[in-house]
Structures are given as structure tokens and as C-alpha cells.
């Protein structure tokens, strides 16, 4: 994190100098007073004040999450680039590089563990919650498209046969994609049964 230490005659002056040097405004920094000395001058009116402050630029959730993810990847021995996208209430981190299969894992379980831990770490230091979504080499995007296709074709079968269909166990995020895909379907309705991690979506004919 970027920070500067400045000594000046007053706290206000020191902070002002620091903001100028960092080229940011007051709302985006943290100010710590490191040292404060005041000497009474001769006859009590020649005061010599010295204040040392440290001013640190605050990172937003996207920057924090990006930095943490990059650090984790380095420690895992993964060479990759991290792209950061911001959406309202959401940060998306796209990881791109070669040989990223081990970062995804079976059924995306390594990727899910990574996303879970990054979210926990970010939530610990931020009051306002923001969801961090991590994708590796477009895995989630492809998975989302596959799930949508699966939902539509299952709905088609349910409609034709008039019988409900039980899908394979899925994670909450994956089930959500199925529900959302079919929420406006006039022929079928969806609900879930069972307990995680074996909770399944059921598609059944309406009425």
C-alpha cells in the first residue's frame, strides 16, 4: 500500500502536504500521527511544534481482492494475469494464463475454495459487503452457459412428458443459474430438495 510520512508544524499542514504528494483526496486515506512534540519557547509564546504523520492510501475492495489473489497465485507457483472488473456490489477477478487446470480442480472445487477464502478475507476488513467472483480462463462463464442449456433442455423434456425431472447435485451458485433460467417459463417450475452438498434442483410441470 502506498504511504508517505511527513513532518510539519501542525497535523493539518502535514496531511495537506501528504495529500498533495500522493495526489488523492482526504476521503481515500488513513492518517496516523506518529510523533507529536511541542516545546515551549522563550517566555512561553514562541512555540515550536513538530508533528509527524503517516498518510496511507486506502484501497477499495477491488484493489484489495486483486492484490490478495495475486499474492496467493504467486505462493501457489501459478504464473497468471489477474484482470479486475467492477460491477455494482460485485468485483470480478479474471485469471488468465497457461496450465490453469490445477487452479480450477475437479468440478471447480479448487476455484470455489479460492473464491471462498478471498471473500472471507475481504469481508473481514471491509464493513460494506461486496461479492468477489473469481473466474479462471473463462471456466465459470462456460459452466454458466452449459447450465443454461441443460436447464432449457430438461424443461423441454418435462413439458413433453408431463413428468418432473431431478437434476444432479449442484452448488448454490449453480442451482441459482438453473432457477433464474427457468423463472419465467410458463410450462415448468423449479425448486430444490436435499441438503448441501447433495441438494438438487427439481423441474416439474406447472399445475
Amino acid at each position: 500500500m502506498k504511504s508517505v510520512e511527513i513532518v510539519a508544524k501542525s497535523k493539518e499542514e502535514a496531511v495537506e502536504l501528504a495529500l498533495k504528494e500522493l495526489q488523492v483526496d482526504e476521503n481515500n486515506v488513513k492518517v496516523e500521527v506518529l510523533e507529536e512534540t511541542s516545546k515551549k519557547g522563550l517566555l512561553g509564546f514562541l512555540n515550536v511544534n513538530k508533528v509527524k504523520v503517516r498518510v496511507t492510501v486506502k484501497e477499495d475492495i477491488a484493489q484489495q481482492a486483486g492484490r490478495l489473489l495475486r499474492e496467493i497465485l504467486v505462493n501457489m507457483g501459478v504464473l497468471a494475469q489477474v484482470e479486475i472488473f467492477k460491477r455494482p456490489g460485485e468485483v470480478i477477478l479474471n485469471v488468465n494464463g497457461e496450465n490453469l487446470g490445477k487452479l480450477i480442480g475437479r468440478h471447480g472445487q479448487t476455484l470455489n475454495a479460492l473464491q471462498y477464502l478471498v471473500n472471507l478475507a475481504i469481508r473481514r476488513v471491509n464493513e460494506e459487503p461486496g461479492r468477489v467472483i473469481i473466474d479462471v480462463a473463462g471456466y465459470r462463464k462456460r459452466r454458466e452457459e452449459n447450465l443454461k442449456r441443460l436447464a432449457l433442455s430438461a424443461a423441454e423434456r418435462v413439458k413433453k412428458r408431463g413428468r418432473k425431472e431431478i437434476l444432479n447435485p449442484m452448488s448454490p451458485t449453480e442451482r441459482r443459474i438453473i432457477h433464474l433460467t427457468l423463472q419465467n417459463n410458463k410450462e415448468v417450475m423449479t425448486y430444490s430438495e436435499g441438503e448441501d452438498p447433495y441438494r438438487r434442483v427439481i423441474i416439474s410441470p406447472k399445475n
Partner: peptide, 14 residues
């Protein structure tokens, strides 16, 4: 044990 499991998953990946 969700957190420690996630840590293990990442460690095992590398």
C-alpha cells in the same frame, strides 16, 4: 470445517 477444508484444497492443488 469449511475454512480449513478450503485451505487444504488450495494447498493440495499445488
Amino acid at each position: 470445517g469449511r475454512v480449513i477444508k478450503a485451505i487444504r484444497t488450495l494447498v493440495w492443488a499445488c
